[in-house]
Simulated scan of single mutants.
Amino acid sequence: MTPQASLQITDPAAARALRQHHAFLGLFVQPQSPSEVAARAGMAANLVHHHARRLTDCGLLFEQRREGGRVYFQLAAREFRVPMTLLPPGDAQGNGTADLQDLSDGFLRAYERSWALVHDGEEDVYGFGDAHQPAPPMTPPDAPSPEGHPAHLDRLTLHLSPQRYRQLARALSALLEEAQTEGHSAGGVPCTLAVLAFRAEDTPHRSLSRAVNSFLGADPA
């Protein structure tokens, strides 16, 4: 058996496996035994064999030959074609879902870290006072986080024409392109800047809504 030139994937499970194990599959462009790719895969040979067997069951690899007690696996095709509708965003691992989940998880970790640094040792106090002297409302302190890259969320909801929406989304993305062109800062640490633009659910009110949740504090002079 030899690899096909192109193979269309019709099974969602195979499409998920292809997306999840793309780098691992790339180790089997040529016939390889698990022991031959174990070091490059960063796995024990028996674990490589287990994953290769599972991907064979999905139709992404095939058993090319057995030789001297070794099993050699190879890609079932040089190219796999996956219809975009096979894994829609509603799928747990659908198109775009993984990207948004990674951003959401990353922001939550950054938020928790920034929150802990700012509010370490503090406590919430729920006072009710009395009829003559009501307790003041809770006002969380507005202190910047001491970390260099604290979490920052700035969300704006407003009514836009399609033309103005595209103009604004492209302008925001252009800022990220500018940062990409400038490249890494000397001595910098990894951080993620993201622009998320989408159509909100239609609401009857016309008020402008903005929510800022930031630990940046005041910009230095």
Rank of each mutant, 00 (worst) to 15 (best):
P141E: 13
H51Q: 13
A131Q: 13
S35H: 04
L27W: 05
P137K: 10
Y126I: 14
Q133S: 09
P3V: 11
A110S: 14
G59E: 06
A77R: 06
G129H: 05
G96E: 03
S207A: 09
A15S: 04
H152T: 03
N213V: 04
P144C: 11
L86S: 08
F215M: 06
P220L: 11
F198C: 01
W115F: 14
A92Y: 00
L87W: 02
S114V: 10
E178S: 12
S209N: 03
L60R: 08
R170H: 07
D130N: 14
T157M: 07
V125K: 13
R199Y: 00
G96C: 03
M84A: 10
I9A: 04
F28Y: 13
T85R: 12
L172M: 09
T97P: 00
F24E: 05
A179Y: 06
V195W: 03
E36W: 01
E67G: 02
A171T: 12
A171L: 09
Q101C: 03
W115Q: 11
A44E: 15
R16P: 01
Y165C: 01
H149G: 02
G59F: 04
L60D: 06
C58E: 11
Y165M: 02
E178H: 12
G106W: 09
L158W: 01
T56N: 10
A218F: 06
T97G: 00
R78Q: 13
A23K: 15
G68C: 04
T2G: 10
L103V: 08
P137G: 06
D219K: 12
A13K: 08
Y165V: 00
H119R: 14
L168Q: 02
Y72F: 15
F198T: 03
E201M: 01
C58Y: 06
R109A: 13
P137I: 12
D154A: 08
S207R: 11
T192W: 01
A15I: 07
R166G: 02
A39G: 08
A92L: 07
V212M: 00
H184T: 15
R113A: 15
P88Y: 04
M1P: 10
R166K: 03
A221K: 11
T85Y: 10
A186I: 15
L27D: 05
E36F: 03
P204H: 07
G42D: 10
T203S: 02
G183L: 13
